[in-house]
Amino acid sequence: MVGISPEESTVWRMMQRAQVRITRRLESELLDAHDLALASYDVLLQLSEATEWRLRMNDLADRVLLSRSGLTRLIDRLQRDGLVQREACADDARGLFAVLTDLGAVRLAEATPTYLRGIRAEFLDVLEPEELAQCTAMLTKILVAPR
């Protein structure tokens, strides 16, 4: 059995709590100011950064922190609100694209200053420049580690 030390357990739990606290605050600010959930903002942002504002649903699911079924439900809501639309893939009859609409781009643009202020207040301004560099190095190491 693999165990972890009390110190390792503490660091792990602190990382989880920090992520949850920041996420909850960002979510609250986006909902209060723009009636836009953080997951919805993330989907709109991912689509805005994609070529022609479109991504295959599978690719979008890989980029956001949602299950495939959770993403499907979220895209349903965003489509009802006119922020995204679905389009069939010409080369794959079963494939679908999620496409950012003009209205979705406007909502994203309106919400982005709130999102960026939240990131700055809850994360960036709390750390010194050298701490940000250390954080970048540590997270890069985690993300590129073989699984």
Score class of each variant (00 low, 15 high):
P129Y: 01
Q46K: 15
D32T: 13
E52N: 12
L45E: 12
R56V: 06
D102V: 10
L38R: 01
V84W: 04
V106N: 02
G3L: 12
L30D: 05
E7P: 00
A93S: 14
D32G: 07
A37P: 04
T140Y: 04
V2Y: 05
V11S: 08
R24E: 14
S9F: 07
L47W: 03
M138I: 11
L100E: 05
D59G: 09
T114E: 05
F97V: 06
Y115M: 15
R63S: 12
R120Q: 09
V126I: 15
R63I: 02
R73M: 03
C135T: 15
V84K: 05
L100D: 08
E7A: 14
E110A: 07
F97D: 03
R21C: 08
E7F: 04
L71M: 03
T10H: 11
L132M: 14
S40D: 09
V106Q: 10
M15N: 13
E8K: 11
V43S: 01
C135M: 14
R25T: 14
A37R: 15
L47A: 06
E87H: 04
L124N: 02
R80D: 12
A90Y: 05
L83H: 07
G104D: 07
A61F: 00
R21V: 12
T23P: 00
R21H: 09
L36V: 10
T10P: 00
S5A: 11
K141P: 00
N58A: 14
N58D: 13
I75S: 01
S67A: 08
T114R: 05
G118A: 08
F97A: 04
D81E: 14
L139C: 07
T114M: 03
A90P: 02
L65C: 01
R24I: 04
L124R: 11
T23E: 07
L100R: 08
L71P: 00
M57N: 06
R120I: 02
R80W: 03
L45Q: 13
E128V: 07
D125Q: 09
C89P: 00
R21D: 13
L96Q: 15
R147G: 09
R21G: 10
R63K: 15
T23A: 15
L108I: 08
A61G: 07
A105E: 13
M15Y: 03
A50Q: 01
D102T: 12
